[in-house]
Each structure stands twice: as structure tokens, then as C-alpha cells.
Design a protein around this nucleic acid. Structure first.
Length: 509
RNA sequence: GCUGGGUUCGUAUAACGGUUAGUACUCAAGAUUCUCAAUCUUGCAAUAUGGGUUCGAUUCCCGUACCCAGUACCA
């Protein structure tokens, strides 16, 4: 029985979006449930698409979520680049492993499972457009390779000559003709594909001495002793190639098991979730704020005020369910409950409302003191310094009304400062001489909300009108916190100060 | 186009051949309150479609429709 080892293998071409975070999360949950290792490997074999900062962003995002790798570029907070006893599989960045792939590519050629190809990008492009003109799709496969420039069609001498003369050749996999590839997926079950529909994928590029995804992925998964590959659905079409590669290397006995996760879809309409949707519909698609090299800013869940636990919980439930009605799970509970056969096959549309609901639930699990602590920086931003005990009392009063800590300010600013302006509609409705004169008089005579209510009742005055007028004076609007609660917190003197301000500000003729 | 994957209320999902098709979010109504929110109660709302198999299909098989992915010297 092999020790469970799974990996999350992102490409540092940009920020990790929430679909990627979910893939990492499922890998992590699976690893931890089985007492195994979670590894982060950076797949940077495409030198042209490298984006500075992306790798760090990925690591920071996972860390924020509480997903800490056992091995990988960033393990236990340290960058691991040199193999050691603890990290025999290092380095974890494919660009730093470039030396190890070539011999595997050549082994395949020697075994007749791959061949050298000398077609230039221009030649391939021409072949592609020629096929397109005839309404077909060009595939570099068992048919077309017979007419193209490669070690299968060229003489041994010619091949040897081109190999040294040119530096832009590739190694291509020699896809078998008409054989059924039978595969098993942990989520999707049995799948079969005829190899004739598949093309001869490039495995290794002489130009930059680097493998493509397919070769690097298989070689590294093998070398790193990966037992399960849990990845996005976009890889399902290349699963037959990967199966065949394991066979070609003779590694089928230790071939990992595969699980292909469905994609996260946009909330409305069709298609997968994209960066644009977030901007357009007002929710983040990234865990953390991201500023791209051009200076364009994308918001993040962290900056939008989400608790990482809520974010993780929400993501876990998108495409997986525990089979019970429990919806709130800590990371430890998720590790316990997770199971691959409860993972949904179909893509899940992302639901921003539910995400918000999750955050509200987690907010409610925090103590008043914890929330007060989180609220203090928000208050400071608004130039408010207040007594800790007072803040705790405020938080206790308003916590049920908010989904995010940052909402606290809008709800409770009236408990810290007098209103700067008064809601026009409410003024129109409640700022009438017969109302405010009575309300002002009542407030002058009463110390508490209870007294005020009793006063209004016993004098047979209109309760709603006087109360709303008072709230308008105290908070700037007729709707909001209870008068009683406001009075208890700000005190009678402040109540009268605000009356004075209102009488001075609003017209009283 | 071709290849592969997918399809239960608007959304996320439950029901491993037998249920009045359940739950949560959203939405609506009512209760409550000085207002708003919260809360509680109630409600609206689904098995894509056509054929099989079966005593019985959401569930198994086949077709169709629709959606998604792949079709790069990108991952």
C-alpha cells in the first residue's frame, strides 16, 4: 500500500481563480483524509507565458485558505529548491528540472514510441489552413505524419544531420492507430476512446530544452510518486495520451488514479467562470486582490471581507456534498467527510448569494470580542477611536444585521458620530413642526427609550411619527437601529446635542 | 465539424428501481417591532426530450436537443 501523495500543479501564468482554489482544496482534503502528502509543483514549462508574481500569488492564496503544502516550492514557509532527506523530490519548479526530461523523451524515441519532428511552425500553420480550406481539422496523427518531415519519413542520415544542424525540432508521441484506450476515472467511471482520433502531441521542444505539459507531468508524477491525480476537467481529453505515456514508459503498475473535476460556471448564462464575470456582476473571482503587470486591479475575497473559513467552506460545497444536510464544515470536518464519489460530475454555477450567506454564518460564530477586534481597524479608517468595551457593546447590538465586518460601519456609525446629513425623503415625511416639537420635548424629559415610549403613550401622541422623527435626528434616517438601543449607547447628553444640531440644520419654520 | 464529458426547482444539491421528489440560498406573503434589519411561520418552484428494459424508472440502455471541454512547439 503506497502512501497517498497528491499534487496541485498550477502554471504561473496569472492569478489562481476560485476554480483553481477548489481543485487545490479537493487535493488537500483527499491527501489529509488519507494521511498523505499534499505537494505543490509549479508547471512553468512555457517560458512565453510566465507572469511575474503569479507563483507567489498562488502560494499566498492557498496559505490564506489554510491549505499548507507538505512539499513543494513553498513548504513550511521555506522555498525548497534542492533535494534533501525531507524533500527528496525537490526541486518543485519544472523550469529547474529541465535536465531530467530529455532522456525520457529520447527513451521513447529509442523504443519506437515517439519520433523526431522537423516541421516548422509555419509549415504546420500552412497544413492547418490547407485542411481548414477543405473544411477539415488538421491533426498531426497516424495519417498525416507519413507525409510530414520527421524521423519516420526521413532517412537515418538525414535525421541525424537535422538533429545537430537545427535547433527547433521536437519529439512527438507516436500515437497508436485504432486501439481502444480504456480508462477509469474516480469521478466519471469507465471511459473508452479510440486512439485514431488522437494526435501526435509534442512532448519535448529542442528550442528551449523543455518538455511540454504532457511529458513533464507524467515524468514528474512518476518521479514524485504521485498516487492520485485530481485536476480540472479540461484535462480529460488528454487522459488517453497520459495513459499511453505511462504504458510506453512501462510505469503502468504505479500509474496514479485519476479524478477529473468539473468546471466552475458563471452565475448566469452559459460558460465557465471568467475574470470578466466578476467585474461585471460585482463579485470576486480571485481569492486575493491581484494587480497584473499592466496595473489592472481585480478584487479578492480576502479584501472583500470574507473569512477564509467561510470561503473554503463555500468552495468545498460547490460540486461536492456530504450526503447529509450539514452545510457548515470546518477544514477538519471537511477532511473527515470528503469523499470522491460524492463529487458532482456536472459543472457548478457559482452563486454569489450563497457565498455571502456562508460569510454571515461564520460571522455569527465569532464572539463579540473577536468581531470588535476586527472592527477596530475599520473604525480607525473612519477616524474613530473608541473604548474597547463600548465597541463590544456596539458589536453585540448590530452583529445580526451584517454579513461582513465592513458592513458594521454603515450600520453603526450613528453610535460613534452625529449624522452629517439627513435623508431627504425621511425629512419630508417626519420633519414637521407638530412632530419634531413634540419629539424634542419628549426627548428632553426622558433618559431612556423605555421612558420615552411610556411618555409618548401616556400623552397619547403618535408613536411611529415621534420615534421615526427622533431616529432621523439621531441617525440621519428614519429606518435603522432601535431608539432605545441608540439612547442607551450614546447617552442623554449626546441625544440632546444631536437635537440641537438637527434644529439648527433643518428648516424649522 | 470531430472527439470526449455533462443535464433534478432560478442556483447548489438529496433521493445508490418503489418518497406526497427532501434540504439550503434567492424570491414572495404573514407574524413580530417605533422603522429597517434579524428572527419565526408559510408559500412559489424541478427530474431536458423521445423511445426502450421493468410489475415499477430521477435512477439502467439507446436516440435527439442543449451546455461544457479539447482539437497549440499553452497549461
Amino acid at each position: 500500500m503506497r502512501r497517498t501523495r497528491v499534487r496541485f500543479a498550477p502554471s504561473p501564468t496569472g492569478p489562481l481563480h476560485i476554480g483553481g482554489v477548489r481543485t487545490a482544496l479537493y487535493n488537500y482534503l483527499y491527501a489529509k483524509q488519507n494521511g498523505g502528502d499534499f505537494i505543490i509543483r509549479i508547471e512553468d514549462t512555457d517560458s512565453h507565458r510566465f507572469v511575474p508574481g503569479a507563483e507567489q500569488y498562488i502560494i499566498d492564496s492557498l496559505r490564506w485558505c489554510g491549505i499548507i503544502p507538505d512539499e513543494g516550492v513553498d513548504s513550511e514557509g521555506k522555498v525548497v529548491e534542492v533535494p534533501s532527506e525531507r524533500h527528496p523530490h525537490a526541486p518543485y519548479r519544472q523550469s529547474q528540472r529541465r535536465g531530467i526530461y530529455r532522456k525520457y523523451a529520447e527513451q521513447l524515441v529509442n523504443d519506437g514510441r515517439a519520433y523526431y519532428a522537423f516541421d516548422t511552425p509555419e509549415e504546420l500553420e500552412a497544413a492547418r489552413s490547407a485542411a481548414e480550406a477543405k473544411g477539415r481539422t488538421f491533426i498531426y496523427g497516424h495519417e498525416s505524419r507519413k507525409t510530414l518531415r520527421n524521423s519516420l519519413t526521413l532517412s537515418k542520415e538525414e535525421t541525424a544531420r537535422l538533429l545537430v544542424e537545427r535547433n527547433d525540432w521536437t519529439v512527438r508521441f507516436k500515437m497508436p492507430e485504432n486501439s481502444i484506450v480504456a480508462m477509469d476515472d474516480l469521478i466519471r467511471g469507465h471511459i473508452e476512446v479510440n486512439s485514431s482520433t488522437l494526435d501526435d502531441k509534442v512532448l519535448w521542444k529542442r528550442a528551449d530544452e523543455l518538455p511540454t505539459y504532457h511529458l513533464a507531468n507524467i515524468v514528474d508524477d512518476h518521479l514524485m510518486e504521485i498516487t492520485e491525480v485530481i485536476r480540472g476537467e479540461e484535462w480529460l481529453p488528454s487522459l488517453p495520451l497520459h495513459y499511453l505515456l505511462y504504458q510506453a514508459f512501462g510505469w503502468q503498475d504505479t500509474m496514479p488514479r485519476f479524478a477529473h473535476l468539473s468546471l466552475l460556471l458563471k452565475p448566469v448564462g452559459n460558460g465557465k467562470l471568467s475574470k470578466r464575470d466578476g467585474d461585471k456582476m460585482g463579485f470576486p473571482v480571485f481569492p486575493l486582490r491581484w494587480v497584473n503587470p499592466e496595473g489592472e486591479v481585480s478584487r479578492g475575497y480576502r479584501e472583500d471581507g470574507y473569512f477564509p473559513e467561510a470561503f473554503v467552506n463555500m468552495l468545498a460545497m460547490l460540486g461536492w456534498n456530504p450526503g447529509t444536510e450539514q452545510e457548515i464544515f470546518s477544514m477538519d470536518e471537511l477532511i473527515q467527510a470528503f469523499s470522491m464519489d460524492k463529487v458532482q460530475k456536472a459543472g457548478a454555477k457559482f452563486n454569489p448569494d450563497k457565498a455571502k450567506w456562508y460569510n454571515k454564518e461564520y460571522l455569527r460564530m465569532k464572539s463579540d470580542a473577536e468581531l470588535a477586534e476586527l472592527f477596530i481597524p475599520v473604525l480607525r479608517e473612519h477616524g474613530v477611536e473608541a473604548d474597547k468595551d463600548y465597541i463590544i457593546r456596539v458589536v453585540a447590538l448590530i452583529r445580526e444585521r451584517a454579513s461582513f465586518v465592513k458592513d458594521f460601519w454603515d450600520i453603526s456609525s450613528c453610535l460613534f458620530t452625529a449624522p452629517e446629513e439627513y435623508n431627504t425623503k425621511d425629512v419630508e415625511k417626519f420633519w414637521k413642526q407638530e412632530i419634531y416639537s413634540n419629539a424634542f420635548k419628549a426627548c428632553g424629559e426622558c433618559r431612556t427609550g423605555e421612558e420615552l415610549e411610556e411618555y409618548i403613550r401616556s400623552n397619547e401622541l403618535p408613536m411611529g411619527k415621534l420615534m421615526n422623527c427622533t431616529r432621523l435626528v439621531l441617525t440621519g434616517a428614519a429606518s435603522g437601529l432601535g431608539i432605545s438601543d441608540i439612547m442607551a449607547l450614546i447617552g442623554h447628553d449626546e441625544v440632546m446635542t444631536r437635537w440641537e444640531k438637527a434644529l439648527n440644520t433643518l428648516s424649522t419654520d
